[in-house]
């Protein structure tokens, strides 16, 4: 799926959890949200973007969440 759209959606998720003062919890929540609501095709595309493009354009906390909590 077009990665631009996924980046936009993932960044919106990142923006919501950004406000959580507990950084580690925020990252867990981001990863958990993706796993709960995104189809695996979408997650795979986003993970590949993090692995291959250093997550260009992605919210830093989303990148960290994917790196720490989404091992596909």
């Amino acid at each position: 799926m077009e990665v631009e759209k996924l980046i936009k959606m993932a960044n919106q998720i990142g923006d919501f959890f950004e406000a959580n003062p507990d950084v580690e919890e925020a990252k867990r929540e981001i990863a958990s949200h993706l796993k709960k609501f995104w189809n695996s095709i979408m997650i795979k595309t986003l993970v590949a973007h993090v692995q291959q493009q250093q997550g260009q354009g992605l919210h830093p906390k989303v990148i960290a969440a994917i790196q720490q909590h989404l091992h596909l």
Binding site: M1, E2, K5, K36, F37, W38, N39, S40, I41, M42
Partner: peptide, 16 residues
């Protein structure tokens, strides 16, 4: 066990 596609996801993938 994999969450399915939502309507906008279906439409995006259809366009693709």
């Amino acid at each position: 066990a994999d969450p399915g596609l939502r309507i906008p996801n279906m439409l995006d993938l259809a366009v693709e």
